[in-house]
Computed example of a mutant assay.
Amino acid sequence: MKKLEAGYIPNSDNSSLKSNSSPSTAVDKKDTETILNKVEQPAKAVKKTTTAAIASTIKEEPSTSIQEAFDFALKIKKQSLSPNSYSGYHGPLKQFEKWLEDNEISDIKAITKKTVVQYLNSVLARTSPRTRNNARTSLSAIFTTLEDNEIIEDNFIPKIKPLSTKPTRNKTFTPKQESNLEAYMKENDKLLLSFVQFISLCFLRPIEVCRLKIKDIDIADKKIYVKAKNKKVKIKIIPEILLNLLPDLSSANPEHSLFTPYKIGGEWDIPERDKRNYYSKRFKKAKDNFNLGVEYGLYSYRHTYITKLYREMRKELNPSETRSTLLGITGHSTLSSLEKYLRDIDAELPEDYSEFLQPSTINKVQNG
């Protein structure tokens, strides 16, 4: 159509039209390229601008250091736990933090399941399966707090299996062992002997003695108020034998600890668990003099004296009466728990059965 409008005649000489049409074609082509360039350049500019805008909005989250994350988790725990429970997290976590630092791991998100497994293996190598399992439990609780606060995506520690353990029960002392230890403490560590006497004569657990404050000892009423694990406070009598061993506490500060590293009655502001560990290590120095192994500890005194009391009571009472009387003394919550405890420490022993094994007796049995 454009050719016809320009004067093109079919089957005729149209050479005169070529010179006129060429500039037009060239102009059209040049105009087209110009238009395309104008379109492409803004499009490229828009593309670059859009990419830059998206990049600026997608900012990488700043990494959280291990120290920051752990300090935050400990702060949360400290607000919700007792000082004794809190110390069970603080120590293991700081040990893990030190191990991570030694292994040049600084970002909380760089900690993987494999990392924790390697650390727990190092704990196992230098301690025991039980200590390794305790470390696993403490770290898992901390990592749950980090997950709840979206510092990490997932707490994978529960997927790490605990190891099977064989708990070591403290053995009862023999009369000779007890006598040797008492003589040593009288000579070298009278404060430790006083600590042991509270365990032995009041049938307390070592950590319960560590919890005692001056105000918990009522000399006039012969009562002792003990913070136990199974209820807030339990009341026990102070036997006369222990009252005679106590120093005068009338002028002592009621809020002070009953036992400190240096004396009865004073300030000792550390977690109960650390107090117990301190006296356990102090007792170890005494027992090492008699080559007593890990199966003997402060808890052995509780076993020893409950066994003594049970056997003395059995001389006058039957087993059922003895257990019922003992229940109010030992602090066990139920009769069944006391019975299991007595079985575990072998408090009940049979009478000598030698007469049944004499040859004459055996022959009578065999002959009917």
Rank of each mutant, 00 (worst) to 15 (best):
E61N: 14
L4H: 15
R169S: 09
A141D: 10
Q41M: 13
A183R: 13
E150F: 11
E5Q: 15
E68W: 08
G368M: 01
G91S: 14
I214M: 06
R302K: 13
D216T: 05
S15I: 11
S324E: 14
H332D: 05
L245I: 12
I105Y: 08
I76K: 15
K234P: 02
D28M: 15
R130H: 10
L245G: 07
T165V: 12
L338H: 02
E61Y: 10
T260Y: 05
I111H: 03
S336W: 03
P167A: 06
P167G: 05
S179C: 08
L201I: 06
T51H: 13
K232S: 14
E272Y: 14
N244F: 05
A43F: 11
F156V: 09
F70N: 07
K229G: 12
Y89S: 09
K232T: 15
D154F: 15
P350M: 08
Y279M: 15
Y279I: 12
L146A: 03
S56L: 12
E208R: 01
E312N: 07
N289A: 08
K285N: 12
N20G: 12
Y8R: 09
K78I: 04
G91M: 13
K190L: 09
Q197K: 12
C202F: 07
S63H: 11
Q118E: 13
K114D: 13
L212T: 08
L357E: 15
K59F: 07
I54G: 09
K263D: 10
Y296M: 01
K308L: 12
S320Q: 13
Y296R: 00
A141W: 06
G328L: 00
Q67M: 13
N20P: 06
F198L: 06
Y89C: 05
N84L: 10
I235P: 05
I199Q: 01
L163A: 08
A135E: 11
G88M: 12
F96E: 00
D344T: 09
K171G: 02
K315G: 08
L100P: 03
A347I: 01
A45P: 02
N103H: 15
K176H: 03
D269H: 11
S65W: 08
L204P: 01
N155H: 06
I207C: 04
E101Y: 13
G265F: 02
I160G: 03
K94Q: 14
L36V: 12
I105G: 07
P206E: 03
K109I: 07
K213D: 07
L246D: 01
L298E: 00
V117W: 07
E101V: 07
E187K: 06
N230D: 14
T174G: 04
L124N: 05
D148E: 15
E182L: 02
L327S: 05
S354M: 10
V294W: 01
R302S: 00
R314Y: 10
N103G: 07
N180D: 10
L357P: 04
P261H: 09
T330N: 00
P239S: 00
K113H: 11
S138C: 11
E178C: 03
D31E: 10
I214E: 09
S106Q: 09
E187G: 03
I199E: 02
F290P: 01
I152D: 04
P239T: 01
F143I: 06
N291F: 06
R130E: 11
I224Y: 03
E104H: 14
S280D: 11
